[in-house]
Design a binder for these strands. Structure first.
Lengths: 354, 354
DNA sequence: TTCAAATAAGATAACGCTGTCATACTGCAA
DNA sequence: TTGCAGTATGACAGCGTTATCTTATTTGAA
């Protein structure tokens, strides 16, 4: 493997003090501003005890030289790296994209950098990989998304290293770290109650993947709403899915083959709801006239299928922003933040036809 | 703003040589292995002129101490940072997710790290942001995706810094940097020819966003196939889209309102094809019986709408992998790599009904 | 043999910052 | 007037690596 070639091979030979284009350093800034290196450092780090005069001179020099501090040098010399890690094992582009967008925005505001690390919760090397990441990058904090949030060995490793952690929608050890989350139980309850309000009594439910605690929480919400409405729980109306499109197809086929098929199907992800729609289209069943379909998440997908999905909006980007915010504002101090979900009504649900 | 709290505040007081949990350094390794620091460095960097004996002793010590070199120290001391940047201004989660996956995989193989930097091509600060990123992180190379690929000022800045660059699907200055790409003209030609082979003569075309050169290339391919088949080009069949869902809806409404509506619509993105499907469903037109619809990209979307889209598979993940590969293998040396696309036939297209 | 080149290892100086300590100058209460 | 807290600046030693130079030792061709 050749790897990268050196970049400084084209110097005009034989010229000692040639004006090489080289990055400005803090030393250059201090010289131009006529102050000490330490004073420049103070200004850069917004420390106290710097006179306005100094601050201004430094800032001018920084601007003039277009100086940007070396991340590496700061990390090496200081106790902080200004980097946080986002660890995920999530196959959904939509989820990851928005999570990154939220975390990334908060990082940018604080001049932090986000290091994204995909992983595999079934890999035996998971814990080592996380440890290596923290060691190598000297991370100041970690954000985890489900289902990595609930891998005990990984959590233990993080505690061992005493690194601040924020988990998004954790399922276990709820009080062990800071966390941001939505109320999945209430959200599923809301959707189920909405379907009931449309007159539906037999409501199919497609669960999510067993690795995700949210799956169980959503099922709980579904049962809770049924109970409140005095509708008996019928286990045959619950189909175990995996959050994916194929699960939705399988669920629709199974549920609609029942003797008493449901008049509405609530899938606990938009992907699965899209699967339900596809299967149902193939069978020639009209949505929402003959069957109401609801999803969960409000991904891009929800607006792109036909008919557009009634679903629960999960503020993924905001969750990411909040997670980073907790990390940057509170560090090790435990803090929890619940964000609001929202029922979004679109064309895939309708009142039960007489 | 409190920012992160210090992490070393919980030392049991009054204990000098307390066994603080602290990262192993190269010095520790050298001591344990009984060799010099430099020899450890040589082994770590796979340099020549190290005896097998030494190598083994060092490797054992590394494993025993669970040592991971400090990224920061390496970057500061060396000429390389083992980091490359991925710069994008792309709103598509699917595209970004897969691009990151490809680049990320190649990086992992080479023990490099990927820094993802979203940007805004219309922001006046674009060039400065890119410069700051390179300075701060001391990047060894840059990968750019469309449409940032074709921002002249940004390119100029990269040249000024003499940093290796690989562009994905560039539209301008084709020979200025290394590049990976697919043959958009041929791909659109393939799809158009396929539709023609199904008997279609009036084929609507929905173009992509003007910022992307691929948009024009796909239109060229469409015209090329028509011409070869002896079908006259009808400008009224071409609808200007923006690559998004709404464009597809608008396109379908416009094209199907023509006196002589098309029997097939080729949208140059899956999103737009999904929009066409949605509009068409609403109008009660059956796909593919009454109208064939084709997309481009083969995103997740293509298999999740109904009917599933006939589309061109664009190997986004592979493009990312190839881009990183070019960067790591060739550095500044110019290199180009064209990847194959593939026509994927699914349920949204059918032979023209007599 | 004999000496240059290839091989193998170490000592030590950077790299560009931050932390710590020292220094000096301000007030302002005693 | 003294002194002491608060304010403002600088000198200098690291941080954990790699680069450069130096010092053996071995190899191989003349």
């Amino acid at each position: 493997m050749g790897e990268m070639r050196s970049r400084d091979d084209d110097l005009p030979a034989g010229c000692g003090a040639q004006a090489r284009m080289t990055r400005a350093t803090i030393k250059d800034v201090s010289r131009v501003a006529g102050v000490s290196i330490k004073t420049v450092s103070r200004v850069l780090n917004k420390e106290r005890y710097v006179s306005d005069d100094m601050r201004q001179r430094v800032e001018e020099a920084v601007a003039r030289l277009n100086y940007h501090p070396s991340q590496a040098a700061r990390t090496l010399a200081g106790k902080r790296s200004f980097q946080i890690g986002l660890i995920h094992d999530n196959p959904s582009p939509y989820y990851i994209f928005n999570m990154q967008a939220g975390v990334g925005q908060r990082c940018r505001e604080a001049d932090f950098r986000m290091i994204v690390q995909p992983c595999d919760i079934n890999s035996p090397g998971l814990v080592d990989d996380i440890g290596a990441l923290i060691d190598q990058a000297q991370l100041d904090g970690i954000i985890m998304t489900p289902p990595v949030t609930d891998v005990g060995t990984a959590l233990a490793e993080l505690f061992r290293r005493k690194i601040p952690v924020v988990r998004v929608q954790p399922g276990t050890d709820l009080t062990a770290t800071s966390a941001v989350y939505i109320d999945n139980v209430q959200a599923a309850d809301d959707m189920t109650a909405y379907l009931i309000s449309l007159g539906h009594r037999r409501i199919g439910f497609v669960t999510g993947h067993g690795n995700y605690f949210a799956s169980g929480q959503r099922l709980t919400g579904y049962r809770q709403a049924l109970q409140r409405a005095g509708i008996g729980f019928d286990a045959s109306l619950v189909f175990p899915g995996q959050f994916d499109f194929q699960s939705g197809i399988a669920a629709a086929e199974a549920l609609l083959a029942l003797d008493q098929p449901p008049t509405a199907i609530f899938a606990s992800s938009d992907e699965m709801a899209a699967g339900v729609l596809a299967a149902v289209h193939r069978m020639g069943i009209a949505v929402p006239r003959q069957l109401s379909v609801a999803g969960f998440d409000d991904t891009d997908l929800a607006q792109v299928v036909w008919p557009a999905l009634t679903t629960i909006h999960q503020p993924i980007r905001d969750l990411g922003y909040a997670a980073a915010d907790l990390l940057l504002e509170f560090g090790e101090t435990m803090e929890r933040r619940q964000l609001p979900h929202k029922l979004i009504v679109r064309g895939s649900t309708a009142a039960l036809q007489g």
